[in-house]
């Protein structure tokens, strides 16, 4: 399990449940390394702002990580973390390696309509 304050996806069942229960989902699949930790930090920061998005992480070395690792959208990925954005259970965007706050916000705003608090 990753040492973050995000919701952790710990099994295949939890993965399905999160996708079934939430229209907009962002899952960051990584380790506790230098390219991954900043992305978790940004997600923790954005969690309060984007109340319409479910933010979660998944340990890259867990048995259920194949759910992200083997997605066709991640086929060419060669850098941690693999971050995948789902709408209604379908992948709408996926990125490989570290991303900045601005890059993540751009994707969230493009893919999910923000609900003003």
């Amino acid at each position: 399990m990753l040492d973050t304050n995000l919701t952790h996806v710990n099994s295949e069942e939890e993965f399905s449940k999160i996708l079934n229960e939430n229209e907009n989902v962002m899952i960051c699949c990584g380790r506790m390394g230098p390219m991954c930790v900043p992305v978790y930090g940004i997600m923790e920061e954005l969690e309060n702002e984007y109340t319409n998005v479910k933010f979660a992480d998944m340990a890259f070395d867990s048995p259920h990580a194949h759910l992200i690792r083997n997605l066709p959208e991640c086929r060419a990925f060669q850098g941690l973390p693999f971050t995948v954005y789902f709408k209604d259970g379908k992948v709408v965007k996926a990125t490989s390696s570290i991303q900045s706050m601005d890059q993540i916000i751009e994707i969230l705003d493009a893919e999910f309509t923000k609900v003003e608090a």
Partner: peptide, 13 residues
Amino acid sequence: FKGLGVSYCATCD
């Protein structure tokens, strides 16, 4: 190509 072959962390990737 960041994350698609270009990396800044050998331990990670």
